[in-house]
């Protein structure tokens, strides 16, 4: 699904990723943990193609295609989805309108017929229900006046409707209470499938109690310094990151 080799990237001329390697197979869930400032969020943005994030060396392929030469929207068309840590507001543009436009754009590039309004509405309502958001949210401006938890659930709803191949969740669990966390985890679990992969960027092992990862990686100093199975996350919770600095 995703193959990253020796990825170096910088933001405002500051090197953040320094030779990152990662391979995520189809249907797998990988968790990326690591101390603050280690480059976890940067990885998501570099893959998504955020302006200002410059790749200085290395490669990244999604489904066999070179991601790094594609525009941001082309990566989305290919099936990359980034759930933001801090989703922005777009006042006046209704969630519904935004979602319809997104779904239309993505379907168009996949050569799928456009959804008619009725089927789209039906799907949107179901997605709302799945993430436990009131349907009134569909009519509100994108993230406009949403609480932190509502924004995160809204991200999840978008993900459900766009049906991406690779979902990168950037600290989707932060700021969620335990019930909301359960909702988000259920949503992600329901979306797991043999042809869809997940990268969960998180600080907390807690999320991994709800979503069992296939692999856990520790990102430190812009590189993956240790990989393991779920037990690594538990170990990190107990021992912190300091012991890994020596490994690195």
């Amino acid at each position: 699904m995703l193959k990253i080799d020796n990825l170096h990237a910088s933001v405002e001329n500051k090197a953040i990723l320094k030779g990152l390697d990662l391979a995520v197979g189809a249907g797998e869930v990988h968790a990326i943990m690591g101390p603050n400032g280690s480059g976890k969020s940067t990885l998501g943005h570099v893959l998504a193609g955020r302006p200002g994030y410059t790749v200085t060396a290395g490669s990244a392929q999604l489904l066999g295609q070179d991601l790094l030469t594609l525009d941001t929207e082309e990566r989305a068309h290919l099936g990359l989805f980034l759930a933001y840590q801090y989703p922005v507001e777009i006042p006046g543009v209704s969630n519904m309108e935004f979602l319809k436009a997104s779904v239309d754009a993505v379907r168009e590039h996949r050569n799928e017929p456009a959804l008619d309004s009725v089927s789209f509405m039906k799907q949107a309502r179901e997605a709302c229900k799945a993430v436990n958001l009131d349907q009134a949210f569909l009519k509100r401006g994108v993230n406009e006046g949403f609480s932190g938890g509502e924004k995160k659930r809204n991200e999840l709803m978008q993900m459900m409707l766009l049906a991406p191949k690779l979902c990168i969740m950037d600290e989707t669990d932060s700021g969620l209470d335990i019930d909301a966390l359960q909702v988000v985890a259920d949503g992600i679990n329901a979306m797991r499938s043999p042809d869809r992969s997940f990268i969960l960027v998180t600080h907390y092992q807690r999320l991994l109690n709800f979503i069992k990862p296939d692999r856990v990686h520790v990102l430190s100093g812009g590189r993956i310094v240790k990989s393991g199975d779920h037990s690594l996350a538990l170990e990190l919770e107990e021992r912190g990151y300091a012991w890994l600095e020596d490994v690195a």
């Binding site: 200002g52 933001y84 766009l162």
Partner: peptide, 27 residues
């Protein structure tokens, strides 16, 4: 904002469509 455009593009919309949608929302 660049962040608004980035969100729209990440969701598959091209820049022009994104700007026109944001401006339409504003109006």
């Amino acid at each position: 904002s660049d962040d608004q455009l980035y969100l729209c593009q990440q969701r598959g919309l091209d820049a022009e469509k994104a700007v026109s949608m944001i401006v339409n929302g504003f109006c």
